[in-house]
Amino acid sequence: MYNHGFRSVYKLNAHIVLVVKYRRKGINVEILNRLKEIITAPLKKWDCELLEFNGEPDRVHILIDYKPDKPLSTLIENIKVCTDDRDRNRLSARINEAISAEESLPGKLIRVIRLSR
């Protein structure tokens, strides 16, 4: 399905991969559901549609449909800030528990490693 603008027809999809620092396996179902809630808020704000969301123990895959008047780099930056700032302490504690008791993740938990259009 294509989107229609004034004198244009477009379909812009972006595949974003968010990765736990050092690719440690720390994402479980509870964390994945919370990340989905966190990520959908800026997408609604930016008038984008979440097409697909799934994850593995060390990464999260997001497929979004966005409009050409929205800069993709700014949208990704906004998603990164939201995943880093919101519930940082609670999410980092859960991820650390999922990894192991003796290891901890310093600094930012999630970073973007690949983007394909």
Rank of each mutant, 00 (worst) to 15 (best):
41 A>M: 09
43 L>E: 02
91 L>W: 01
8 S>F: 07
93 A>N: 09
109 L>E: 02
57 P>R: 05
56 E>Q: 15
11 K>D: 05
102 E>P: 07
14 A>S: 15
58 D>L: 09
77 E>W: 11
111 R>A: 13
90 R>K: 08
62 I>N: 01
42 P>H: 11
33 N>H: 10
103 E>T: 13
113 I>N: 11
84 D>Y: 07
49 E>H: 07
70 K>G: 08
32 L>S: 06
94 R>N: 00
10 Y>N: 08
104 S>N: 10
59 R>M: 11
110 I>H: 01
13 N>L: 14
71 P>S: 13
37 E>L: 15
55 G>S: 05
19 V>F: 08
101 A>M: 08
5 G>S: 15
77 E>R: 14
18 L>A: 04
59 R>C: 07
112 V>P: 02
61 H>C: 07
57 P>H: 07
63 L>E: 06
30 E>V: 15
80 K>M: 09
9 V>T: 15
91 L>T: 02
18 L>H: 03
103 E>I: 12
42 P>R: 10
41 A>P: 00
86 R>V: 10
53 F>A: 07
78 N>P: 06
23 R>Y: 05
27 I>P: 01
79 I>P: 02
10 Y>R: 03
34 R>D: 07
1 M>R: 12
66 Y>M: 04
44 K>Y: 05
36 K>P: 01
48 C>T: 04
37 E>K: 09
95 I>D: 00
48 C>P: 02
110 I>C: 06
34 R>Q: 08
110 I>P: 01
20 V>N: 03
85 D>P: 00
70 K>Q: 14
20 V>F: 08
